[in-house]
């Protein structure tokens, strides 16, 4: 197939087809302007490294080790898409690639569209922070020596007072007291810190949020509160890509779930499909369903969960 030169979103006839771009829809998926908010097609990420299997240390050759291959995923407006896979299987690499951040020895290929426009490495980096924002895992992503208010308004487009006003507005919306802006990160409680991270991400009014494991360490009640904030953002017309290892959590909050296994998304389907194993297409998704503690807790012997290490 010839390499396409088009830069706009490939417009399949979305309304007519239940399945397109390798995924099925949830009923609230919105194709504003006829395209997806984020569309990743054929993403491949690999690294050059020394052959770990070579017993003779000095003879080890440098290999190209693929970590992610042929990955497709799409996020619509107004929905939360959860990528579910085991820790250490390369999900965070996917997030980094969408944010335009690449490791020096990485080889990254594929097509990424944002809001219908095809992106390259430079334009992805330009979108970072303003249109696509990351909500990181933990408070350790905040500068411990800077008051959180300053970290939220930060540097960016617009004058400082407008940004400070925006920060106050965000704090008010997410139930953070005005005085919290004067605190240092270590003075925040876990719940407050998480909201500060969310405010940081929302500062420049992004359309898409990538949340990388936002809930570990939170007990279920607090995790539900955290996820409700993402729900609000999605309901307001944004898109959320939720990266998690916790399938129960993903099923409780997301609209669609992408099952990540062996370096690719094996199935991207709506949460409703998880009601029964018969509506799941891929054998691995079916195996996951049966292995859930509330279902069979069946350990069907599946190959090692990540394969290439």
């Amino acid at each position: 197939m010839a390499v396409s030169v088009e830069t706009t979103h490939a417009p399949h006839q979305h309304d007519a087809r239940r399945e397109h771009h390798h995924h099925t829809h949830a009923h609230q998926s919105q194709h504003l302007g006829g395209h997806h908010l984020l569309q990743v097609e054929g993403l491949g990420i690999g690294f050059t490294m020394y052959d770990p299997g070579e017993p003779r240390f000095f003879k080890a050759r440098q290999l190209f080790v693929p970590v992610i291959h042929d990955l497709h995923i799409a996020v619509h407006r107004g929905e939360i898409v959860a990528i579910v896979g085991a820790s250490g299987s390369g999900k965070t690499l996917l997030a980094d690639s969408i944010m335009g951040m690449f490791a020096p020895n990485a080889q990254v290929s594929g097509n990424i569209w944002y809001d219908g426009v095809k992106q390259d490495a430079a334009s992805l980096a330009a979108l970072r922070g303003s249109s696509i924002a990351l909500v990181p895992q933990s408070i350790s992503h905040l500068d411990p020596l800077m008051r959180v208010g300053r970290q939220v308004w930060g540097r960016g487009a617009g004058d400082k007072h407008a940004r400070m006003a925006r920060q106050r507005e965000l704090f008010a919306r997410y139930g953070l007291p005005e005085a919290a802006a004067r605190l240092y990160p270590h003075e925040l409680s876990g719940g407050m810190a998480r909201r500060v991270l969310l405010c940081c991400a929302l500062m420049d009014a992004p359309q898409l949020i990538i949340a990388d494991e936002p809930t570990p360490g939170l007990d279920p009640a607090l995790a539900q509160v955290a996820l409700a904030d993402f729900r609000d953002f999605a309901d307001a017309g944004g898109g959320v890509l939720l990266i998690t290892h916790d399938i129960e959590l993903a099923l409780s909050v997301a609209d669609r779930v992408a099952i990540f296994n062996q370096g690719t998304v094996v199935e991207e389907t709506s949460v409703a499909s998880f009601a029964s194993p018969h509506t799941l297409a891929h054998p691995f998704s079916k195996a996951l369903w049966h292995a859930l503690p509330e279902h069979g807790f069946v350990a069907q012997p599946v190959y090692g969960e990540e394969g290439a290490s």
Binding site: D246, F297, A299, P301, E305
Partner: peptide, 13 residues
């Protein structure tokens, strides 16, 4: 916690 459900079921069983 960090494993997929299939591995979880296998290890716990």
């Amino acid at each position: 916690t960090m494993l997929d459900a299939v591995s979880q079921a296998q290890l716990w069983r």
